[in-house]
Design a protein around this nucleic acid. Structure first.
Lengths: 199, 199, 199, 199
DNA sequence: CGGTAATCGAGACGGTACGTCATGTCTTACA
DNA sequence: TGTAAGACATGACGTACCGTCTCGATTACCG
């Protein structure tokens, strides 16, 4: 049984340092100024790269923004141990994430990605696959385990519960009408748990 | 006590038909194509107006989008009678609104406004004053009445509850990972009411 | 009898100073560096104009080069009096023109126009209408007059004679294998006149 | 006196088939589309060669164009026997050459070379050494022989006569205001010979 | 036969200019 | 004064070439 060999890789290989420089430059500029206010030229100059090189690997500014921010985003993820308590697990899931999201002007970038996703279904898929689904999946596991344990009734609409958990946090992040802090996250989890009949 | 008379109005008065034509053209084009894909030139041509006239009354494209869409939005509002049941009142508040929001590609425009608001605090205030606060205020009244009635404990964090109600719906509208229908809205209200200890 | 009135001219009129600034900048830069070595951006900056404004009035760099150089070219034209002598008239026609052509690196610009004309029939027509035909026409008049006078046989192929007069001068200008001076021009006219049987 | 031996030739020798493939591809593409419209990438792909290989042997696109077209050009040359008649010898010199030049869009390539030569003295030398001098030299021989024979006065300016012969043909080829056919060539030779006092 | 040296194809890369498009301001004439 | 028409400066866009580079593979000579 032979593993599929990597192809011989003809031609000059992609320069990893350039790739990283572009992503770093994009992330820094976009977080500081917002995606729309940053030009591809500026990113190219900051990265010491060529605009053509950027377009060779990222078709649009938004796809670059997604990769660039996701790089920081995913680097700052820590998995928590399941504790047996649904409430505690949900708080442990949401709190670090909400702290990260509120720690820098990520909301501005998220809003830009969201905006781009509205008119581009392919990009919407990319966006959800990176920023939405992984986090929902973790929540889904916690809730499914709770159903198996009998802590939550078996006819519970898990997807609805996930929206009840993430929706309010996104709401505050994006609309900016109030701050997102640990108290708020705990409050959301408390009401939802109470609503599901969890002690 | 005299009502404040309109000022003498020197020169040619503002043309109301032009104002409406601009708003209509902007709303139609932006709903169909998304705010970013529509240029001010296109709106001007469609409205039979001059670009200078548009900029005279609206400083940015987003402020025009806000006015244009809010005009349709507010025209389609109906106030429901308070029924005595918190749950029923909340459903009566959220359902027509969620139907409206999902009836056309409003989410695309909302996302654009939200995006603009991230980098422009003044516009963020405008946005919230038009699209967020009026609806929250209606919900706030319902919940405050419930507190007065004793249906809800007096230490309830009303703002958090409002986010629990609106957040999930906005979440689905913007992220597009699932549809917003009456069942979903009722589900949200059910869990939240249960969480608050409402029968 | 009413002269055809110019139409009311709606909108902001074209800025004549901008037009002249663009032509001057283009002429100066192109003569100094050659058409190909000058970028539209550079011309725009030098003219204090916008690139978009240039493209609004001139579709290609070559069409701009044509207008710009023709402006200098045509300004430096002086008409000579017919003297009765074909030879003298031809010398009087060709000498000032050849001096002008050799006075600055016009040949470099002409070569660029010629090159562009090879692949663009419409531009070729423009080029000939500006740089070739007016001068040929003057020569044609002289030669036709000579035919009427009987100085030249009536079956003379005028167009061929014109090519015999202009061809050698263009040849030296473009190929650069020898200089174009008054002696050369007179020599060309002498041989051609002798070939036509003119005393 | 020893002929300088080729050096021992270390390393892999140059691939002759590649050289020919590049020249063929360049000639075909440039004649069909014009030098400026053809990119080095396109030539490389058509030739099945690498762009780096092209640049290794030809410093600029124009130098490649020169080699590529000269290859066809020189392959189609036939030497005519001296006949004793100057007029006949000149016609025999110019006619096959003018036929060749007019047989394909060579003028377009010539114009590009000429254009490049205007801004690059070294290339101008190359151009003349390939396309101008060999032909002039043949004409020079004919005319010098005519001087020796006494058919032409000894004080004749041979270079001027050469320009009178080649200039008009180049003029029509490049300016395109009239066709170059055998009649035209014979007409040029006739007038020039008459001008020189040749029967 | 193994090492050294050059050539070659593939293709990534930095850079420059292109020609287009949208924004927001302006200048004119008309209402 | 308000407005339509439309010119204009500004600046970003996304593309196309240029000429250089870095690989791995190839092909000769040379020891």
């Amino acid at each position: 049984m032979t593993t599929t060999e990597a192809p011989p890789a003809r031609g000059r290989p992609r320069d990893e340092r350039t790739r990283v420089a572009i992503l770093d430059a994009a992330a820094e500029l976009m977080l500081e100024n917002g995606v729309d206010k940053v030009s591809m030229d500026t990113i190219a100059v900051r990265a010491g790269a060529s605009k053509a090189t950027i377009y060779r690997w990222w078709p649009t500014k938004e796809s670059l923004a997604l990769d660039a921010v996701y790089r920081q985003w995913s680097a700052a993820q820590a998995e928590a141990e399941p504790s047996g308590s649904v409430r505690a697990d949900l708080v442990a899931l949401l709190t670090p994430w909400s702290r990260l999201a509120a720690s820098k002007p990520y909301a501005r970038v998220i809003a830009a990605l969201l905006n781009a996703a509205q008119s581009n279904p392919d990009f919407a898929v990319q966006y959800r696959a990176h920023f939405v689904e992984p986090r929902r999946e973790r929540g889904r596991e916690i809730l499914n385990a709770a159903v198996r344990d009998g802590q939550v009734p078996p006819d519970t609409d898990i997807e609805l519960v996930l929206d009840l958990l993430y929706g309010p946090i996104y709401h505050r992040l994006l609309q900016g009408h109030a701050t997102v802090d640990d108290r708020f996250v705990r409050g959301v989890v408390d009401v939802v748990c109470a609503g599901l009949g969890i002690s």
